[in-house]
Amino acid sequence: MLELKNISFQPNDAPILSHLNLTINEGETVSIIGPSGSGKSTLLRLMADLISPTDGQCFLNGKNYISYKPEQLRQTVSYCPQTPTLFGETIFDNVSFPAKIRKEKCDIKRANYLLTAFNLSQYDLNTNVSRFSGGEKQRLAIIRQLMYVPKFLLLDEATSALDQKNQQLVEQEIFKYHQEKGLGIIWITHDIKQSTRLFSRRLTIEQGKISNEEVIK
């Protein structure tokens, strides 16, 4: 379970998040909507422990974030940023990075499976990624995040550059892990249809606060 208790984030004069409380249960799927600059991405970055709140505390399974090693926490609560940044030169450089972190051998079979599932099967692992389109970059960034399935996956407009067909493919694959492995999903989107289609709860964030919370199913 992820808990944010009375979280504020105010690095300068203007607060980005103020006194926000949020609990997300294990395996829950939550969509987040809200206008640009409302603090949605900051909220996800706080959950991923990439920044710390200026006030309030975050908890994972009842334990304060600071009691976890940062790398251990981020492998459990994994954040896929808004702008996909690919590593190195090839697809392999990207899909093998999570294994490198764990000092393990890259699971080539899984990498190839994910490439097919995300409609990138026309490429092999040695393909150079420098000419990838925005949509291809987004898909490869999500594949990288799913090489090891975390407990919570935080997605920041992760399919914004995809056409509808590929968007649905990506959604299906991600939600498969929700059904099979109890993956919790927290997904920021500007697509109102997407925000209700598959999620159990929808949050609206405005001016750094949760202004609306709807249980969808």
Partner: peptide, 8 residues
Amino acid sequence: EAKLSLGA
């Protein structure tokens, strides 16, 4: 940050 997000 993308690498840190993966737990590096």
